[in-house]
């Protein structure tokens, strides 16, 4: 019988597979351990980021035009809905300002420094997005120079979209919450139920349903569809009170022992042109 591969080819393929699997697993492990990549990688990424910024200008313009046309088609119904909400919004804004002032003065009286809800923001522009199967990451135009650190939460539009996963000198990568890796979406959240809060962490993302999953919930507090989910601030790096999404359903886990809460993210993970990085004042100290 004629051999398809020679013995030498088979040995080469086996060695190559072992090396590549080792390289993938090793660099994944290393990326999780370190805050910033090694100098050469950082230098290369900064250089690539510069080129990418130039190339992003026309393609982003085309993308923006396509999105604008899409938005135009929804304008009429959207305008009607927004009009009904705007009075409520103005009232809430005034109330928020009053409460913020009251909060600041009470903190002063108690001689409290920064708390979990205090954070500064750094605005950034998306210059690229990884065209990859997994780990869809954004590249933003702010990095170490602007005080960004690995793990900081990134917001866009209505709520949180992800966390900083790698910081270079002039740019940084953002791992989106739709990513299932641990550094992307394992953050502490809280849900305001009717009988009290339910605390926990995001344990997974279901890409087939586009939902965040808060697993292993043993609390008896009632949670229903439509309840709001926000960050709890536990853990220190992510400030409290950042909107995450709304509860879509509550199910039993695979063993029937605890509850699993399915959450629809508030932010649109498709169109992300500008982002805001929340720098916790507690984490920064």
């Amino acid at each position: 019988m004629r051999k398809i591969f020679s013995s030498r080819t088979v040995v080469t393929i086996i060695i190559a597979v072992i090396v590549i699997v080792g390289l993938i697993a090793g660099s994944n492990w290393w990326a999780k351990r370190t805050n910033t990549p090694p100098f050469i990688q950082r230098f290369g990424n900064d250089l690539a980021g510069g080129v990418s910024r130039v190339i992003a200008m026309p393609t982003n313009a085309v993308g923006r035009t396509a999105n604008s046309i899409g938005n135009l088609l929804d304008t009429f119904s959207e305008n009607r809905d927004l009009k009904s909400k705007i009075d409520e919004y103005a009232q809430n804004k005034v109330r928020l300002q009053t409460i913020e002032e009251e909060n600041a003065s009470l903190k002063k009286q108690l001689k409290l420094q920064a708390t979990l809800t205090d954070y500064k923001t750094v605005s950034a522009v998306t210059i690229s997005r990884s065209p990859t199967t997994w780990q869809s990451q954004l590249v933003i135009n702010k990095g170490l120079n602007s005080g960004l650190k690995k793990g900081m939460p990134v917001l866009a539009g209505a709520g949180i979209i992800g966390r900083i996963s790698e910081v270079n000198t002039t740019n940084a990568k953002v791992a989106l919450i739709s990513d299932t890796s641990e550094e992307a979406n394992r953050f502490a959240i809280t849900i305001k139920g009717d009988d009290g809060d339910v605390n926990g962490i995001v344990t997974n993302f279901n890409r087939e349903k586009n939902q965040l999953i808060m697993g292993q919930v043993t609390s008896d507090n009632k949670i229903k569809k439509g309840d709001l989910v926000k960050t709890s601030g536990l853990g220190g790096i992510i400030p409290a009170g950042i909107f995450v999404g709304t509860v879509t359903s509550v199910t039993k886990d695979d063993y029937g022992l605890s509850k699993q809460i399915n959450i629809e993210p508030a932010a649109d993970l498709g169109n992300i042109t500008t982002v805001v990085v929340a720098v916790s004042e507690i984490g920064a100290q």
């Binding site: 080129v51 396509a66 042109t273």
Partner: peptide, 29 residues
């Protein structure tokens, strides 16, 4: 080749709303 590497990323970023509209995940390659 190098130019297209960055174009892929820019397209994914600029047209992300279309390419990643749920449930699709389309990659420009």
């Amino acid at each position: 080749l190098l130019f297209l590497l960055f174009v892929d990323g820019s397209l994914m970023s600029g047209m992300g709303g279309i390419f990643t509209a749920f449930p699709w995940h389309i990659l420009p390659v």
